[in-house]
Amino acid sequence: SIEKWVFDEKQAEVIFALEDDIPIGFALYFLSFSTYLGNVNMHLEDLFIDPEYRGNGYGKALLKELAKIVLERGYGRFEWTCLSWNQPSIDFYESIGAKQKDWNVFHFTGDELRNFVDE
């Protein structure tokens, strides 16, 4: 569960966006490592703003807070992935100056992972 990996195992961190002390969004991130940079990176796994609060700057504010953490802690890079069909998010990220890189994401999950190990 998310709670286990964030609070017990401390493998990810979360920051929240609040309006009048009510949580209306969050950003969940974890650290990765780049041998190319020789440094730790922040990988944003999830950025979520409740739909009724979108368009009010909360997503940008969360990203700025994360960027500050990257700078303060001396990480090498701030990165995330976005689904190729999610044009509203792509437009948002590009509007704030983020750049798409030429990476293809590969992964194994569930049966694919087990089949690969067992072959």
Score class of each variant (00 low, 15 high):
Phe7Lys: 13
Asp8His: 13
Glu9Lys: 15
Lys10Asp: 11
Gln11Val: 07
Ala12Asp: 04
Phe16Trp: 14
Phe16Leu: 13
Leu18Gln: 10
Glu19Asp: 10
Asp20Met: 07
Ile22Asp: 06
Pro23Val: 02
Ile24Met: 04
Gly25Met: 01
Gly25Tyr: 02
Gly25Leu: 03
Phe26Cys: 03
Leu28Lys: 08
Phe30Glu: 01
Ser32Lys: 14
Ser32Gln: 08
Ser32Trp: 04
Phe33Ile: 07
Ser34Glu: 04
Ser34Pro: 03
Ser34Met: 05
Thr35Ser: 15
Leu37Ser: 08
Leu37Lys: 13
Gly38Val: 10
Asn39Leu: 15
Val40Ala: 12
Met42Ala: 09
Met42Ser: 10
His43Pro: 05
Asp46Gly: 02
Leu47Asn: 01
Leu47Met: 01
Phe48Ile: 11
Pro51Cys: 06
Pro51Leu: 09
Glu52Pro: 05
Glu52Thr: 15
Tyr53Trp: 14
Arg54Trp: 09
Arg54Tyr: 04
Arg54His: 00
Gly55Tyr: 09
Asn56Arg: 15
Asn56Val: 02
Gly57Arg: 07
Ala61Arg: 07
Ala61Gly: 04
Leu63Glu: 03
Leu63Thr: 04
Glu65Phe: 03
Leu66Gly: 10
Ala67Tyr: 01
Ile69Tyr: 14
Leu71Arg: 13
Arg73Thr: 10
Tyr75Trp: 12
Glu79Asp: 13
Trp80Phe: 08
Trp80Val: 00
Thr81Leu: 10
Leu83Val: 09
Leu83Lys: 06
Trp85Thr: 07
Gln87His: 12
Gln87Ser: 12
Gln87Tyr: 15
Ser89Lys: 05
Phe92Arg: 05
Phe92Ser: 03
